[in-house]
Simulated scan of single mutants.
Amino acid sequence: MGGVRGPTLRELAVQALSSVERGYDLLAPKFDATPFRTPDWMLAATITALREHGPFERGLDVCTGTGAGLALLEEATSERPTGVDFSAGMLEQARAAHPDADLVRADARALPFEAAYDLVVSFGALGHFLPEERGPLFDGVYRALRPGGVFALPMSRAPKPTQPAYWLLTGFDLAMRVRNAVWRPTFVMYYRTHPRPALFADLNAAGFTVETTPMPGVGELIIARRPPG
Protein backbone atom coordinates (compact mmCIF):
# COMPACT_ATOMS: atom_id res chain seq x y z
CA MET A 1 0.00 0.00 0.00
CA GLY A 2 1.20 3.49 -0.85
CA GLY A 3 4.39 2.05 -2.36
CA VAL A 4 5.67 0.93 1.03
CA ARG A 5 7.22 -2.50 1.08
CA GLY A 6 5.91 -4.85 3.73
CA PRO A 7 7.99 -6.03 6.71
CA THR A 8 10.60 -8.72 6.22
CA LEU A 9 10.42 -12.05 8.04
CA ARG A 10 13.18 -10.84 10.34
CA GLU A 11 11.23 -7.69 11.20
CA LEU A 12 8.10 -9.73 11.90
CA ALA A 13 10.11 -12.07 14.14
CA VAL A 14 11.52 -9.14 16.12
CA GLN A 15 8.02 -7.74 16.52
CA ALA A 16 6.62 -11.09 17.65
CA LEU A 17 9.30 -11.36 20.34
CA SER A 18 8.55 -7.87 21.69
CA SER A 19 5.76 -6.59 23.89
CA VAL A 20 2.52 -5.60 22.18
CA GLU A 21 3.31 -1.88 22.47
CA ARG A 22 6.93 -2.16 21.34
CA GLY A 23 6.02 -4.62 18.60
CA TYR A 24 3.53 -2.22 17.06
CA ASP A 25 5.93 0.71 17.40
CA LEU A 26 8.38 -1.30 15.29
CA LEU A 27 5.78 -2.43 12.76
CA ALA A 28 4.00 0.92 12.41
CA PRO A 29 5.85 2.35 9.36
CA LYS A 30 5.02 -0.76 7.30
CA PHE A 31 1.75 -1.81 8.94
CA ASP A 32 -0.49 -0.68 6.08
CA ALA A 33 1.45 -2.98 3.74
CA THR A 34 0.55 -6.05 5.82
CA PRO A 35 -2.60 -8.25 5.84
CA PHE A 36 -3.26 -7.07 9.42
CA ARG A 37 -4.57 -3.67 8.33
CA THR A 38 -8.39 -3.58 8.25
CA PRO A 39 -9.34 -4.04 4.59
CA ASP A 40 -11.33 -1.40 2.76
CA TRP A 41 -14.17 -3.85 2.03
CA MET A 42 -14.68 -4.34 5.78
CA LEU A 43 -14.81 -0.58 6.32
CA ALA A 44 -17.30 -0.16 3.46
CA ALA A 45 -19.54 -2.96 4.77
CA THR A 46 -19.49 -1.41 8.25
CA ILE A 47 -20.48 2.04 6.96
CA THR A 48 -23.41 0.50 5.06
CA ALA A 49 -24.59 -1.46 8.11
CA LEU A 50 -24.32 1.61 10.36
CA ARG A 51 -26.63 3.75 8.25
CA GLU A 52 -29.79 2.40 9.82
CA HIS A 53 -28.50 3.21 13.33
CA GLY A 54 -27.40 6.83 12.79
CA PRO A 55 -26.96 9.67 12.21
CA PHE A 56 -23.88 10.20 14.37
CA GLU A 57 -22.14 13.40 15.37
CA ARG A 58 -18.91 12.46 17.13
CA GLY A 59 -16.98 9.20 16.83
CA LEU A 60 -14.13 7.39 18.59
CA ASP A 61 -11.95 4.63 17.12
CA VAL A 62 -10.55 2.40 19.88
CA CYS A 63 -7.15 0.83 19.11
CA THR A 64 -6.99 2.99 16.00
CA GLY A 65 -3.55 1.82 14.87
CA THR A 66 -2.64 3.67 11.68
CA GLY A 67 -6.17 5.04 11.45
CA ALA A 68 -8.24 2.76 9.21
CA GLY A 69 -11.25 3.31 11.48
CA LEU A 70 -10.74 7.07 11.35
CA ALA A 71 -11.47 6.97 7.62
CA LEU A 72 -14.83 5.35 8.43
CA LEU A 73 -15.62 7.93 11.11
CA GLU A 74 -14.77 10.77 8.74
CA GLU A 75 -17.59 9.51 6.51
CA ALA A 76 -20.03 8.28 9.17
CA THR A 77 -19.93 11.25 11.60
CA SER A 78 -20.34 15.00 11.22
CA GLU A 79 -17.53 16.13 13.57
CA ARG A 80 -13.79 15.47 13.56
CA PRO A 81 -13.04 11.93 14.78
CA THR A 82 -10.92 10.77 17.68
CA GLY A 83 -8.54 7.82 17.68
CA VAL A 84 -6.96 6.20 20.72
CA ASP A 85 -4.04 3.76 20.83
CA PHE A 86 -1.17 3.01 23.18
CA SER A 87 1.47 2.68 20.45
CA ALA A 88 3.21 5.99 19.78
CA GLY A 89 4.50 4.63 16.49
CA MET A 90 1.04 3.73 15.24
CA LEU A 91 -0.34 7.12 16.28
CA GLU A 92 2.46 8.83 14.34
CA GLN A 93 1.33 7.05 11.20
CA ALA A 94 -2.33 7.83 11.91
CA ARG A 95 -1.48 11.51 12.38
CA ALA A 96 0.22 11.65 8.98
CA ALA A 97 -2.78 10.02 7.27
CA HIS A 98 -5.49 11.90 9.21
CA PRO A 99 -4.12 15.30 10.24
CA ASP A 100 -7.55 16.63 11.22
CA ALA A 101 -8.29 13.83 13.71
CA ASP A 102 -7.84 14.11 17.46
CA LEU A 103 -5.37 11.41 18.52
CA VAL A 104 -4.90 10.28 22.12
CA ARG A 105 -2.29 7.90 23.50
CA ALA A 106 -3.93 5.76 26.17
CA ASP A 107 -4.53 2.18 27.26
CA ALA A 108 -7.90 0.97 25.96
CA ARG A 109 -8.48 -0.75 29.30
CA ALA A 110 -8.56 2.70 30.96
CA LEU A 111 -10.15 5.04 28.42
CA PRO A 112 -10.00 8.70 29.53
CA PHE A 113 -13.40 9.78 28.13
CA GLU A 114 -16.74 10.55 29.75
CA ALA A 115 -20.01 10.74 27.77
CA ALA A 116 -18.20 12.38 24.85
CA TYR A 117 -19.21 10.29 21.80
CA ASP A 118 -22.32 8.88 20.17
CA LEU A 119 -20.40 6.30 18.10
CA VAL A 120 -17.44 4.12 19.11
CA VAL A 121 -15.88 1.62 16.70
CA SER A 122 -13.03 -0.85 16.91
CA PHE A 123 -11.54 -3.05 14.20
CA GLY A 124 -9.54 -6.22 14.75
CA ALA A 125 -8.45 -5.34 18.28
CA LEU A 126 -10.29 -7.83 20.48
CA GLY A 127 -7.55 -10.44 20.11
CA HIS A 128 -5.21 -8.15 22.05
CA PHE A 129 -7.32 -8.47 25.19
CA LEU A 130 -7.49 -11.53 27.39
CA PRO A 131 -11.04 -12.58 28.33
CA GLU A 132 -10.71 -11.05 31.80
CA GLU A 133 -9.65 -7.72 30.24
CA ARG A 134 -12.80 -7.27 28.17
CA GLY A 135 -14.69 -6.05 31.25
CA PRO A 136 -12.51 -2.93 31.76
CA LEU A 137 -12.44 -2.36 28.00
CA PHE A 138 -16.23 -2.45 27.62
CA ASP A 139 -16.77 -0.44 30.82
CA GLY A 140 -14.54 2.29 29.41
CA VAL A 141 -16.39 2.32 26.09
CA TYR A 142 -19.72 2.55 27.96
CA ARG A 143 -18.46 5.58 29.91
CA ALA A 144 -17.15 7.20 26.73
CA LEU A 145 -20.57 7.03 25.05
CA ARG A 146 -23.37 9.49 25.49
CA PRO A 147 -26.71 7.97 26.55
CA GLY A 148 -28.19 6.26 23.51
CA GLY A 149 -24.77 6.00 21.85
CA VAL A 150 -23.57 2.99 19.85
CA PHE A 151 -20.53 0.76 20.15
CA ALA A 152 -20.13 -0.96 16.76
CA LEU A 153 -18.05 -4.13 16.46
CA PRO A 154 -17.77 -5.69 12.98
CA MET A 155 -17.32 -9.46 13.08
CA SER A 156 -16.25 -11.59 10.13
CA ARG A 157 -17.98 -14.90 9.64
CA ALA A 158 -16.09 -17.54 11.66
CA PRO A 159 -14.52 -20.30 9.55
CA LYS A 160 -15.75 -23.86 9.99
CA PRO A 161 -13.53 -26.81 10.99
CA THR A 162 -13.80 -28.06 7.41
CA GLN A 163 -12.06 -24.91 6.14
CA PRO A 164 -8.27 -24.38 6.12
CA ALA A 165 -8.67 -20.95 7.76
CA TYR A 166 -10.07 -22.61 10.90
CA TRP A 167 -6.92 -24.66 11.39
CA LEU A 168 -4.66 -21.75 10.46
CA LEU A 169 -6.19 -19.57 13.19
CA THR A 170 -6.21 -22.42 15.70
CA GLY A 171 -2.56 -23.13 14.96
CA PHE A 172 -1.67 -19.45 15.31
CA ASP A 173 -3.33 -19.26 18.74
CA LEU A 174 -1.52 -22.41 19.87
CA ALA A 175 1.81 -21.00 18.71
CA MET A 176 1.15 -17.75 20.61
CA ARG A 177 0.30 -19.65 23.79
CA VAL A 178 3.56 -21.58 23.55
CA ARG A 179 5.48 -18.38 22.84
CA ASN A 180 3.95 -16.61 25.83
CA ALA A 181 4.62 -19.58 28.10
CA VAL A 182 8.37 -19.52 27.40
CA TRP A 183 9.15 -15.90 26.49
CA ARG A 184 8.81 -12.51 28.15
CA PRO A 185 7.47 -9.95 27.53
CA THR A 186 4.21 -11.50 26.39
CA PHE A 187 2.58 -10.59 23.09
CA VAL A 188 -1.16 -10.90 23.46
CA MET A 189 -2.83 -11.63 20.13
CA TYR A 190 -5.32 -14.47 19.80
CA TYR A 191 -8.01 -15.11 17.20
CA ARG A 192 -10.19 -17.57 19.10
CA THR A 193 -10.58 -16.06 22.58
CA HIS A 194 -13.68 -13.92 21.92
CA PRO A 195 -16.53 -16.14 20.71
CA ARG A 196 -19.86 -14.46 20.08
CA PRO A 197 -21.69 -15.69 23.25
CA ALA A 198 -18.84 -14.48 25.48
CA LEU A 199 -18.80 -11.07 23.79
CA PHE A 200 -22.55 -10.68 24.22
CA ALA A 201 -22.34 -11.66 27.89
CA ASP A 202 -19.52 -9.19 28.58
CA LEU A 203 -21.29 -6.38 26.72
CA ASN A 204 -24.50 -7.03 28.67
CA ALA A 205 -22.52 -7.05 31.93
CA ALA A 206 -21.13 -3.60 31.06
CA GLY A 207 -24.70 -2.29 30.68
CA PHE A 208 -25.18 -2.42 26.90
CA THR A 209 -28.22 -3.65 25.05
CA VAL A 210 -27.02 -5.76 22.13
CA GLU A 211 -28.36 -6.47 18.66
CA THR A 212 -26.81 -7.36 15.32
CA THR A 213 -27.05 -6.09 11.77
CA PRO A 214 -26.13 -8.41 8.88
CA MET A 215 -23.20 -7.51 6.64
CA PRO A 216 -23.84 -9.68 3.55
CA GLY A 217 -20.79 -11.55 2.38
CA VAL A 218 -18.80 -10.43 5.43
CA GLY A 219 -20.48 -11.40 8.69
CA GLU A 220 -22.39 -9.16 11.08
CA LEU A 221 -22.13 -5.87 12.88
CA ILE A 222 -22.63 -6.07 16.63
CA ILE A 223 -24.52 -2.98 17.81
CA ALA A 224 -24.05 -2.46 21.55
CA ARG A 225 -26.08 0.55 22.67
CA ARG A 226 -25.79 2.50 25.89
CA PRO A 227 -29.41 2.86 27.03
CA PRO A 228 -30.84 6.39 26.73
CA GLY A 229 -31.61 8.44 29.79
Rank of each mutant, 00 (worst) to 15 (best):
P197Q: 13
G6Y: 01
D139T: 11
E74T: 10
E211I: 11
L119W: 01
R184L: 11
F36K: 12
G219C: 10
E74W: 06
G140Q: 01
E74M: 12
A181T: 08
T193K: 11
P164L: 10
F113W: 05
V218A: 07
L126R: 00
F138I: 04
F123S: 01
A97T: 13
T209F: 05
T170D: 09
R226G: 00
T64D: 12
P147D: 05
S122N: 07
P216E: 07
E75P: 06
G229N: 14
A224C: 05
E75S: 13
D102W: 12
I47P: 00
V141P: 00
L17P: 01
E52A: 11
V4T: 14
S156Y: 10
A108P: 00
P112I: 11
R109K: 14
G127V: 03
P7Q: 03
S87R: 09
P147T: 06
P164N: 10
A44D: 14
L17M: 13
Y117D: 00
D173K: 02
L199R: 04
E132C: 06
E75V: 13
H98D: 11
R5L: 11
A205R: 15
W41N: 14
A116G: 11
R143E: 08
A108S: 12
T186E: 12
A33V: 01
R157A: 12
F208L: 06
R109E: 12
G207Y: 00
V218N: 02
D173V: 00
T82R: 10
E11T: 06
W167H: 14
H194V: 11
E75I: 11
L70I: 15
A110E: 13
A152H: 03
F187M: 08
D102Q: 15
L17W: 10
G229D: 15
V188G: 04
I223L: 14
G171L: 07
A165H: 09
E220P: 02
H53P: 05
A108H: 03
F113G: 00
T186I: 10
E11K: 10
T162K: 13
A68I: 06
G2I: 13
G67L: 07
P214N: 10
A115K: 12
D202C: 05
P227H: 09
V182L: 14
N180H: 07
A205V: 10
T66H: 04
P112Q: 11
R192I: 04
A101G: 06
R5K: 12
M155R: 10
A198P: 04
V210A: 05
M155Y: 05
H53S: 12
